[in-house]
């Protein structure tokens, strides 16, 4: 069911929002609009297509031998220690390092 019941979001409210968005969007180009126009949005990874471009097919073999092994040993080498879960050793949750505006 796509038909809206009458709500706070009347046609006039929505039209006003569209007009406001357009007047804001005119100031910036589409590509950097996400960063400039919507100040509450956190944006990551725009303009970094050289890195993390994903895998490619290849036609060569590999000289790294790593096809065996299911020996489960936990190695504390990742960044997961920075990701806090409730009840973990650090107790209280510190504020975010990341500057996320609210």
């Amino acid at each position: 069911m796509t038909k809206a019941t009458k709500t706070a979001f009347s046609g006039a409210v929505l039209a006003g929002a569209v007009a406001a968005a357009i007047s804001g969007a005119q100031l910036v180009t589409a590509t950097d609009a996400a960063a400039a126009n919507v100040k509450c949005y956190g944006v990551a990874m725009a303009g970094q297509n050289d890195c993390a471009a994903g895998p490619g097919t290849t036609c060569q073999g590999t000289s790294t031998v790593d096809y065996q092994g299911n020996a489960w040993k936990y190695v504390e080498e990742g960044s997961c220690a920075s990701m806090e879960l409730p009840g973990e050793r650090m107790g209280s949750l510190e504020p975010l390092e990341r500057d996320m505006p609210s």
């Binding site: 290849t58 036609c59 060569q60 073999g61 590999t62 000289s63």
Partner: peptide
């Protein structure tokens, strides 16, 4: 690398 007999086994590694 080496084959089962310890002789050279070449890998087409492009590296």
């Amino acid at each position: 690398q080496e084959d089962d007999e310890g002789e050279p086994l070449l890998i087409d590694s492009h590296d």
